Amino acid sequence: MFIIFGTRGLKHTVSESPVLSNSCPNCNNGNLVNKLYRRWFTLFFIPMIPLDVVDRFYQCDSCKSAYNENIKTILQRSQDEINENQKRAKLVFAKALIASMTHMSIIDGDFAAEEEREIMDAIEGLPEMKEELMAIHQNVKVTGNQDNQVFNFLNEARNELSSEALINILAQAAVVLLADGAIEKEEENLMKEYLIACGLPKGMYQTLIDKLMQKDMTKIKKEQLN
C-alpha cells in the first residue's frame, strides 16, 4: 500500500478581520477581504494538518486583485486626509460667510436687528465652530474691514473652495443686504467688490438680488395662503 503525503497551499478568509467595503483601488467598488495563504500537510491529497502561514493579504471580491496588508493603512490615511480637508473647507467657508455677512450689515452705518438675526441664525447652524465664528463676528462688527480682514477671508475661500460654494457665501451675504427691506448704495458697491474678490463677474450682482427677491416673494405668498 502506498501512502501519499505532502504539502499544499490553501487560501482562507480571515473571519475576524473586517471587510473593507467598496475600497478596491482597481475596480473602485469591490470589497477587500482579508485572506491568508497557509501550507497544509496532506494525506492522499487531503489537507490534514495546518502548517505555517505563507502570506496575508487583501483580495477584491469583485475583480480579484490582491494587495499587501498595508493597503488598509493607506486607505485609512487617505480617508483621514479627505475628512481633514472637508473639515478645513467647512471652516474656511464659515469664516468667509460670517465675516462678509457682518461686514455687509455695518457698511451703511445702521446695524439692523433683522441683519443681526440672520447672522446669528448662520452661526447657530454651525455649532462646532460657534466660538470662533462669534469672535470673527464681534471683531468685524467693531473694526469693519480693518487690515483687509474680510477680504482676506474671501481670498482664502476663493483659493480653497468651488465657485458654487463662493456663490453660496455671497448669496447669504445678500440676504443680510435685503434683511432691513432696503438696499443702500454702499451695500450694492460692497457686494460687487465681494464678487470681484471671489473671481466672479460683478454683473452677477443683479442676478443674485433678483433671485433672492423672487424667493422672498414666493415665501410671502405661501405664508398668506396658509
Results as ranks from 00 to 15, higher is better:
Met204Cys: 02
Met134Glu: 15
Gly203Val: 05
Thr7Ala: 04
Gln214Thr: 15
Gln224Glu: 13
Ala197Asp: 03
Ile98Tyr: 03
Val92Thr: 11
Gly9Pro: 02
Arg38Val: 11
Lys221Cys: 07
Val19Lys: 10
Glu156Leu: 06
Ala94Glu: 04
Ala99Val: 00
Phe151Arg: 09
Leu133Tyr: 04
Asn26His: 07
Ala96Arg: 05
Ala113Ile: 01
Ala171Arg: 08
Met204Val: 05
Asn68Leu: 12
Arg117Ile: 01
Glu115Asn: 07
Ile167Ala: 05
Glu116Gln: 14
Tyr58Ile: 01
Val33Met: 08
Arg8Phe: 01
Thr13Trp: 06
Ser21Trp: 03
Phe57Met: 08
Lys215Glu: 15
Pro18Ser: 09
Thr42Pro: 10
Asn70Ser: 12
Arg77Asp: 04
Leu161Glu: 10
Gln146Asp: 14
Met120Ala: 11
Gln59Ile: 00
Ala89Pro: 02
Phe93Tyr: 12
Ser105His: 06
Leu225Arg: 04
Ile119Met: 04
Asn28Pro: 00
Ala174Leu: 00
Phe153Ser: 07
Pro127Ile: 11
Asn28Tyr: 04
Tyr67Thr: 03
Asp210Phe: 06
Lys222Leu: 15
Leu10His: 04
Asp216Tyr: 09
Ile123Arg: 06
Leu51Asp: 09
Asn226Gly: 11
Ile49Arg: 03
Gln214Lys: 15
Glu160Leu: 00
Ala112Gln: 14
Met104Arg: 08
Gly203Glu: 08
Cys198Met: 13
Leu75Asp: 13
Gly203Asn: 11
Leu195Tyr: 07
Tyr58Phe: 12
Cys63Gly: 02
Ala112Thr: 01
Ser15Gln: 09
Gln172Val: 05
Lys222Val: 10
Asp80Arg: 13
Asp110Cys: 03
Glu156Gly: 08
Ser162Leu: 04
Gly6Thr: 01
Leu208Met: 06
Met213Cys: 07
Phe93Ala: 01
Leu51Thr: 00
Lys221Arg: 15
Asn152Leu: 11
Glu187Gln: 14
Leu161Gln: 10
Asp180Leu: 07
Ala165Leu: 02
Ile3Arg: 14
Ile106Ser: 08
Thr102Leu: 02
Glu156Met: 02
Ile46Phe: 12
Arg8Trp: 03
Asn139Tyr: 12
Ala66Thr: 00
Gly109Gln: 04
Asp147Val: 05
Val142Phe: 10
Asn139Thr: 09
Ser78His: 10
Phe45Gln: 10
Asp80His: 12
Glu84Lys: 03
Gln172Asp: 15
Lys90Pro: 05
Pro47Leu: 02
Ser163Lys: 15
Arg88Ser: 12
Val150Trp: 02
Gln214Asp: 15
Ala197Lys: 02
His12Asn: 08
Gly181Pro: 14
Tyr67Met: 06
Gly125Arg: 06
Gly199Met: 12
Gln224Arg: 10
Gly125Thr: 06
Glu156Pro: 13
Ile46Met: 03
Glu128Ser: 13
Thr143Ser: 13
Ile71Asp: 14
Leu225Asp: 06
Pro18Phe: 04
Ile46Val: 15
Val150Arg: 05
Arg158Asn: 14
Val150Leu: 03
Ile183Pro: 15
Thr207Trp: 03
Ser65Leu: 06
Gln206Cys: 01
